[in-house]
Design a protein around this nucleic acid. Structure first.
Lengths: 120, 120
DNA sequence: GATCTATGTAAGTGAGTGCTTACACTCTCG
DNA sequence: CGAGAGTGTAAGCACTCACTTACATAGATC
């Protein structure tokens, strides 16, 4: 889980993750989305993501196709979820007037930011 | 969000977070839970957590009391949540595109997975 | 087989991290 | 006031990270 969280703490790697989440992409095409850094840098990011179990690789001819691996973030997601739910349980028991964390709104905020961070 | 994810990627800091999640604790008492590392090291971890907005500090006389900050992990949790839900959306679209005999049941299966995997 | 294309690896570098020991500060209490 | 407890900060060190440029390797193409 440490590796997954560390991998996902980098904004470039998060952007890569979002790219390969919906479709399988070759390394070069991924690198094209990041003109500000070199292609080897992207390759190294892909290695970090692969080692952390966040993406899968599949050689196809000349190229290597990357794609999101769903289970990769499970433990990390579970940790955060546990923090939330335990806290929520505590809050619920403690006081009903306590404001409920608005997760839906947070998700939408992230979506807006995602559009800005990964211009495809 | 970067800071929060980076902070939470360290196992010692995750342990600290769990300690101060349910009760407010002074720095020294927190440090007592980690005999393998020095007290200043713990103090620096607390600084990282504070800077990342994951804990709140409150001076009380001689001591400084730390406690979990609810909003600190919101963006990070939302990011992971987004990954999950978008993936579910993708599966749903894929399921609908394939012309299965019983389309409704397929969608419901996806919905059940959604409930299990992203408990709100 | 020679060469092009796609990609990973090596080596080096500046910045950051996590730890240590030593020190400084601040509040409390005799 | 002065001593002690509780805590943060400074300095130094080994290690890791994110990047660069230069090079190596494997499959496709002529």
């Amino acid at each position: 889980m440490d590796a997954a969280l560390r991998a996902v703490a980098d904004p470039t790697r998060r952007a890569i993750l979002r790219l390969v989440q919906t479709e399988e992409l070759p390394a070069g095409e991924i690198a094209d989305h990041f003109p500000e850094i070199s292609r080897p840098a992207v390759s190294q990011h892909l290695r970090v993501l692969t080692d952390a179990g966040l993406v899968d690789v599949r050689p196809e001819g000349n190229r290597r196709l990357y794609r999101w691996r769903r289970d990769g973030l499970r433990d990390a997601a579970a940790f955060l979820d546990e923090m939330w739910s335990e806290q929520l349980e505590r809050l619920k028991v403690a006081a009903e007037r306590e404001e409920w964390p608005d997760r839906t709104r947070a998700v939408q905020a992230i979506r807006r930011r995602a559009e800005k961070e990964t211009p495809s």
